[in-house]
Write a protein that binds this DNA or RNA. Structure first.
Lengths: 245, 245
DNA sequence: CACTATTTCAAACGTTCGTTTTAATGTTAG
DNA sequence: CTAACATTAAAACGAACGTTTGAAATAGTG
């Protein structure tokens, strides 16, 4: 029985703190006492308001993904309505799907870069309940955008499109996770590449914008790359590197 | 006792089991008792042979990455020696860097897909000691390949190359992690896309090969995509390759 | 053989985990 | 007011955590 009149101050503070701590340390490495301590609420508050630690993580994502998925569907609906019956351009589809997400990084009320980083880091979490949750949350949106890409690229085998959608999701997920070894090796993170100071905070919104500027051409280039010549299973790939076998 | 064990037998069995369990459940969600139980060794064996749980994870990676990094450097050395003083082709560099890794997935003695999945899932782990470890392991290889790409693409701003190397790492990392929501949503994983049975096992080596066939054109297309028009002065449109057959 | 170093083993260490309990405190409507 | 409900509070729960201990077993060497 959801009661909208209840006091949401404790609830929201828990969600905000959990979002940040789950991002910084991961789900397993974040304890209830870390969360309730940072949120300055009682230890039992999480179980009272959400039921369990797993349900807390789900709610942390649900309040962001419900907006994201709705927005993604609405943008696609709008594009397809404008196009009449003609297929959309791949660049439009990518902009709708990835641009909508990256725009969340510029809006603190939508979670900002904190949520984006959390999302990127959690998408590769092997925990069963997490993957099951994401599968349910993403099912409709993925299906709609997949079919839009099928229509946009009628000459490309659908299996190939699925592969490349998979790769594009990976490039984006990893990019927003912000844990790249490159950043530690080169001593400069995305923030420095974006020309801003490295400190997290308000500068993150600029980071999200520049990330989108850089990511979109890359994804489009990958999506429209020449198809690999399909060989019989016994035949091996083209050899442009020295033999290693 | 079912069979006699030598000194290194315990060590190696712990490493093999830890590699699989860390992949399946993640570092934090894998307990020492799960590892020693599955390896059929005493609980204290891990601390005796490796010192700590963190040190065990480092050793799990070190025994694989030492081979991978050495191989990557040797392949690059060989390519640059063959090329004389001329710059390498981007496709050669990508094949050397990503192809070498993906070939590990075909060789069970190098860890196979189990290690590849573990690597992909761990690269986005926020734990401090993990990121510090990866930074040290990858420093030399990243630097060498980065500079090779700089020479191969002299007209592309170096910051742009770093961005795209970042995106390529992400696409590969996410792909080998094998946790994509697409797989759960569409009900078919990479194994099905590869035309093989979905069961993990020997079929995984075929998966690694087909993954490489699909991933390499995508990465090359992304790397050579038209540059985003920003405040960049020269050479913005270098090479467009939309040949969606 | 005796001696030493290495490895295995069962048991326990102290700590932290997520969760539950029970009571106290606000809050709201009749 | 008071009865009913919603929320917070302190304390404790049993279980599981990574690690350590000290003795027993094994292997290697002269």
């Amino acid at each position: 029985m959801p009661d909208q009149r209840t006091n949401h101050d404790t609830r929201d503070r828990i969600l905000d703190v959990a979002e940040r701590l789950f991002m910084e340390h991961g789900y397993e490495a974040t304890s209830m006492r870390m969360i309730t301590g940072a949120a300055e609420v009682n230890l039992a508050a999480v179980n009272y308001h959400f039921g369990s630690k797993e349900a807390l993580l789900r709610e942390v994502f649900r309040r962001r993904l419900s907006w994201l998925n709705r927005e993604r569907l609405e943008v696609l609906d709008r594009l397809e309505a404008q196009a009449g019956g003609t297929p959309l351009k791949p660049s439009q589809i990518l902009e709708a799907f990835f641009g909508t997400l990256l725009r969340m990084g510029e809006d603190e009320s939508l979670g900002g870069m904190t949520f984006l980083r959390l999302l990127g880091r959690t998408l590769t979490d092997p925990a069963e309940f997490i993957r099951h949750f994401f599968a349910g949350e993403y099912a409709e949106v993925i299906d709609r955008y997949k079919r839009a890409l099928f229509r946009a690229l009628p000459d490309v085998p659908q299996a190939e499109i699925v592969w490349r959608l998979h790769f594009m999701l990976g490039a984006m997920s990893y990019a927003i996770a912000g844990t790249d070894v490159l950043q530690v090796v080169t001593g400069c993170g995305l923030s420095d590449l974006a020309g801003e100071n490295g400190a997290q905070g308000p500068g993150d919104t600029a980071l999200a914008r520049r990330l989108a500027q850089r990511l979109m051409p890359f994804l489009l280039g990958g999506l429209r790359a020449p198809l690999p010549q399909l060989l019989d299973p016994s035949g091996n790939q083209q050899e442009s590197s020295p033999k290693t076998a």
